[in-house]
Design a protein around this nucleic acid. Structure first.
Lengths: 108, 108
DNA sequence: AATTTGCGCAATCAAATAGTTGCGTTTAAA
DNA sequence: TTTAAACGCAACTATTTGATTGCGCAAATT
């Protein structure tokens, strides 16, 4: 398995989903984030690293602290995919409609 | 990590996302699905197993063939989460708006 | 009846993940 | 200046994942 770094990978983990939610409110440091969970700082740090690689999060150094900002725009990738899916599904139902329509026409 | 079986896990893999897309058009057998990719039947079968456990897909036995149907409803779980996220984000901007509003009021 | 086809299942393997522990570095506080 | 806090990074472990191979069973085909 090649290491994938995309939004879908990012949100696959429940802790990361929680971190994303946390960061919607505002930028936080790894310690601040870890305080909200039962996770250790290092564990959070690893997730932040992945989220950074997925470009869902940016770092901002402030003195000895690093503030992690959410890049909410990246979440649109999920929306885009969902939209594609829904369009395909709609088309499928259109086809079904066509079939049903034809059945109606052929009725005696 | 306890094995999670949720929609987020299901869509984390690109092959599984492709399978989901394929199944929007209609139910297919593992072999039929495998024909659309460079994946082997067994590899596809494993993904189908996961998708089944995630309840994104249902099996329907027809003789010696098994047709895999998409349970499109399950995809709403993703939408729900995205919606939650967007609401949180909106609230954040509301707060920002309040702050900006106050800054304006304090202007000379 | 013999063969082929479609499939699940188990065993196996390499790579990735999630997590921990233990550094070292830089910045801030005493 | 010494000490403490906030990190990143590397090493290490257990667990999961994605994929392959080979087997066996049941349903079609011949």
């Amino acid at each position: 398995m090649k290491t994938r770094r995309d939004v879908f990978q990012a949100i696959a983990d429940p802790t990361r989903r929680a971190i994303i939610m946390l960061l919607t409110v505002g930028a936080l440091t790894p310690n601040a984030i870890a305080d909200h969970f039962n996770s250790s700082r290092q564990a959070v740090s690893k997730h932040l690293q992945i989220l950074t690689e997925c470009e869902i999060v940016n770092q901002e150094q402030q003195g000895r602290e690093i503030h992690y900002h959410l890049n909410a725009d990246k979440m649109k990738d999920i929306e885009k995919w969902l939209e594609q899916f829904k369009q395909l599904l709609a088309k499928r139902f259109e086809q079904l409609d066509t079939v049903l329509e034809q059945l109606k026409l052929n009725r005696p």
